[in-house]
Design a protein around this nucleic acid. Sequence first.
RNA 1: UGUCCUAUGGUGUAACUGGCAACACAACUGAUUCUGGAUCAGUAGAGUCUAGGUUCGACCCCUAGUAGGACAACCA
Length: 567
Amino acid sequence: MEDKKNPEEEKTARSLNFIEEIIQEDLRNTKNEGRVHTRFPPEPNGYLHIGHAKSICLNFGLGKKYNGKTNLRFDDTNPVKEDVEYVDSIMEDVKWLGFDWEDRLFYASDYFEQLYEYATILIRKGKAYVCDMTAEEISDTRGTPTRPGKESPFRNRALEENLELFSRMRAGEFPDGAKVLRAKIDMVSPNMHMRDPILYRILHTPHHRTGDKWCIYPMYDFAHGQSDSIERITHSICTLEFEVHRPLYDWFIREIGIYAPRQIEFARLNLSYTIMSKRKLLELVQEKRVNGWDDPRMPTICGLRRRGYTPESIRNFADTIGVAKRDNIIDVSLLEFCIREDLNKRANRVMAVLNPIKVILDNYPEGLVEEMETLNNPEDESAGKRKVPFSKEIFIERADFMENPPKKFFRLSPGGEVRLRSAYIIKCESVVKDPVTGEIAELHCTYDPLTKSGMSESTRKVKGTLHWVSVKHAIPAEVRLYDRLFVKDDPDATEEGKDYKDFLNPDSLKTITAFIEPSAVNALPGEKFQFERIGYFCVDKDSVKDHLIMNRTVTLKDSWAKSEKSW
RNA sequence: UGUCCUAUGGUGUAACUGGCAACACAACUGAUUCUGGAUCAGUAGAGUCUAGGUUCGACCCCUAGUAGGACAACCA
């Protein structure tokens, strides 16, 4: 069902975002011979989240829109944090989102030799030097944003000595941390990144791709811009925090004398009631606050996928939020709108009762079972029809009955009539309560045989329509009711003494046993449904033949619940 | 006592590059409906951070403020 056609692509001549304007201006000036080439450059040290999805849609979208290309490149310059597990998950997620890097899968580690060469060019030009200070000393002499730094005593080492030392670093003659290669720029620059930044550090750690070939690794700043240059990326799109790095990248490019991509920064996505920091997400996983990276409450791509989100809905979301430079927090309700909009058109309907109350139809023949025909999706004729068994005893939703209803209550109440979806109109005759708890145990109703769906009398109007499921045909299923992970719209906005974990929603997951109509018995993991009048659900990957597990993706809009709340 | 970036309804993004502020979500009416869903029609909500300036005219340009964000990892 993931592959149904979706008119999402026919974008109504929307105005250009600032990046598209820059690109079109470059195109007008025939910069880069009219080429547009972007890239998505993740570090394989965590799973991708919805914020990355924004960047992926942006980069690949631009590539497609301007008839250009988009590379996938792993910025894998820090072996101590990176792992193939992440490489694999990232490729899976990008593909799932619907993007294709074709034969352009790259790794910064592919360029280690070239980068080393670039470094020696700088050394030869007297623009880089080997520094023997400790990490602490370097940090102490860097100054602060408002105070200038001090020059390293090793700053004026002879060219030859620097060259020799650097090659001995590579040869593994020094332990971790003993030396670094630094650029010689300006220790009093108001831009901290220009204060003789570190280019290479010694790390006797095997790399997931280069094994133990290297024991020195380039810093991100020394690898990223040059990698873009090597790939002849025309527009290097990144998030705002790298704006301050741009002068440094430009300096490298200029001093080394290589092709200059144009870096453009945009504001990263923030979503209300969740967090987007990889570090914090990792923490939630490690501390078992959630059940792994793909826990359906996580804002990760795999979490959203397991939750029941479709790639189309996420792409449409990315398109709707736009791109700009100002900080933003998007309301989750927009994401929810996007998935409802998509699933409304494609999810087959099914009836399921989450919290049952038994209804006995006193005048319905004992033992009779009728097969009620109904539409799989009223929004899509091509989805076809199915049959739902109906019998004397059915379950309805506990919330659909009230003994003393307010005037606007359209559901069942003593003496009241209601339509059972795709079946009959029934009337509530009596209420049976548990003698000890006083809780409603069952309802006795009568049905009107002339009101069967499709029959002439069926046009009779009643205010409410309820979903139901035949007691003896119902399949019990484990249903996982997910809600937002945090109770605070901006969990990162920390008050003193608190952190984001203090705002975790204790009710973000409720597991119940629900009763589902039999047509869903053989549903496969990933299959999506609308439980009529309740919400969208999708079969979890843990689901097995005799134990169906369904995840709630999102509820249906519920204006009744809303008006109830205001009482 | 620094550098850089940003500032438009509740939220996000626009405004033909200087011509009477629009779209989406959210909210609220009403119609319709065998899903209190969907759909349809409609309502309300900002005069564009502030103060000056340029101009016939400023969300847009200039100046100065104010507010928010980023930058001080041998992380990316």
